[in-house]
Amino acid sequence: MSVDRRRFFTLAGLTALAAELPVLGRARRPEGGREAGPGGSGTRWAMVIDLARCHEHPECTRCIEACNRAHNVPRIPDPRHEIKWVWKEPFEHAFPAQKSPYLPQTLRRRPALLLCNHCDNPPCVRVCPTQATWKREDGVVMMDWHRCIGCRYCMAACPYGSRSFNWVDPRAYLEHPDPSFPTRTKGVVEKCDLCEERLADGSPPACVEACPAGALHFGDLSDPDSEVRRILDGRFAIRRKPGLGTEPQVFYLV
């Protein structure tokens, strides 16, 4: 049988393409189990942050430290490469739409605690090309660090700057990594996971537990008797950039 060179290359090319076909046709991996929330069906986790109470302790960073410890968040000195799950930001930056020259002194230049809003309609989930980030039924926006390809489309899509990318190897910046929680590799995106590992055990998120001022409240929005619902029923709360339709599930009492 004679095969000339062109025929050979054509066949080789088609064979390579054919080898990809079963991959293309393969169904999505079963997602069962990923969806089930630990709080039972219908649970909708949310957080209420009382800024006035938080401001009573201006130097306090207990929540941030608890989070960083619990999740092996590295302390990278270069601000360009920082990893942030929970952090403080001036009120005017957190709520640019509320900017006003007559902002009360109790808010002006005072920090607001920021974290992933675990949006009900998360743009990061919409854009992710590999479903490495997805929303659970209980509202937690999750992140699979082993599937993430590091394209950073989610970072461009997040209107809250809540996502960090591992520009360098984070393990080099961890002094005492906690073996009970995974560390990350370079080249993947990460963010607050609302302590889903603690929710599974029935505990509140680490930041909520660590707050000495009782400024952080956590609970189930679908339960009318929950603490968060009772607070929201009685007090006016604002959310970050509500006009974008992302439906943040983190509420701020001002």
Binding site: E20, L24, V127, C151, K186
Partner: peptide, 26 residues
């Protein structure tokens, strides 16, 4: 250029393995 920009280029076939029609990148 897309491959050069990926943080985990060895995983790039994940776009094909987990096709996601709601992502414009797909």
């Amino acid at each position: 250029f897309i491959v050069a920009d990926l943080g985990q280029p060895q995983r790039m076939l994940n776009i094909v393995l987990h096709p996601t029609p709601h992502s414009i990148l797909f």
